[in-house]
């Protein structure tokens, strides 16, 4: 149901990946994504995939859950693959009919792209599976905090993200309540053309917006009552500390990156 869509789909656990410092996880995910694009042949990509498999196993997040994260991008993957098959014309020709030319190069590139996109998505969902949304926003805030000149805006954005995350379930509840109330008044939300159904949503969305404004107003009062006055002079309860675990993880990613660069040099580039 709707309650299942929690942004980030955090998967609670106590694995070593869960216990890593969120800042380090953010940095390493970022590096991983860059290195994925550095890969030029199947050997280097293979190293990245292997590294990802090791991390997934360490995280103890069920493979089924991981695979679920790929589902929404199936269309993009298919589309990219088809485009590459038709448009890349290196290598030996395999199939030639009027304007369609399929070559071995096209097939290789397509497979390469599929693996690359999947690795990309799995790596970033591994971050959200093993880190609670609050920790991610906190991590971002702290990573960016050295940027003194924009410290306040970093804090403001992080606070906005936290509040948005906090209110998603509340608003989902509210949406259901209003939908039911409108249905009880005879509103027809389920039949008709797409346009008709979209129009039928208006009487649901208007009250939802109005209550959201009221909520925002009350929340602002409540925050002021708790002495909220922006980032200035604010401390945090949870101190983030890099541990040995994070050092190992960093080392691991460094070795993987080194391997990728070496394999890129040693073997023929595919793309």
């Amino acid at each position: 149901m709707m309650h299942d869509i929690t942004i980030g789909q955090f998967f609670p656990g106590n694995s070593i990946i869960h216990r890593m410092d969120p800042r380090m996880k953010l940095i390493l995910t970022f590096i991983y994504i860059i290195v994925i694009f550095v890969c030029k042949n199947f050997w280097s990509l293979g190293v990245m995939v292997l590294a990802l498999i090791i991390m997934v196993l360490l995280s103890k997040v069920p493979v089924k859950v991981i695979l679920k994260s790929i589902k929404p991008i199936a269309i993009i993957i298919t589309f990219t693959a088809i485009l590459n098959i038709f448009y890349v014309s290196d290598g030996d020709p395999l199939f030639d009919w009027r304007f369609i030319h399929i070559t071995t190069g096209g097939i290789y590139t397509a497979i390469f792209m599929i693996i690359r996109i999947i690795a990309l998505v799995v790596a970033s969902s591994l971050l959200t599976y093993t880190t609670s949304p609050t920790l991610i926003t906190d991590g971002i805030e702290r990573l960016l905090s050295p940027l003194k000149f924009m410290k306040n805006s970093v804090h403001t954005i992080a606070m906005m993200m936290t509040i948005a995350l906090r209110f998603i379930p509340t608003l989902v509840d509210e949406f259901e309540k209003i939908t039911n109330a409108q249905k009880a008044r005879g509103a027809d939300l389920e039949t008709g053309t797409l346009v008709e159904r979209a129009k039928a949503l208006v009487p649901v969305l208007v009250p939802l917006f109005i209550t959201s404004f009221r909520r925002a107003y009350e929340l602002a009062f409540a925050m002021e009552c708790r002495c909220y006055h922006g980032a200035e002079g604010r401390t945090r309860m949870k101190i983030m500390k890099y541990s040995k675990l994070d050092a190992f993880a960093l080392l691991f990613i460094c070795v993987v990156t080194g391997g990728v660069v070496a394999l890129n040099i040693l073997f023929v580039h595919i793309i």
Binding site: R166, E218, A222, R226, R234, T235, R236, K238
Partner: peptide, 28 residues
């Protein structure tokens, strides 16, 4: 206030309770 939903800021209970003291700049 009246509506408990509209005064809880954080996504975790203890982090919400910490919100006030954090604003006061108290030691972690």
């Amino acid at each position: 206030f009246q509506n408990p939903d509209n005064q809880i800021v954080a996504t975790i209970v203890e982090e919400d309770v910490a919100f006030g003291p954090e604003n006061l700049g108290i030691e972690p």
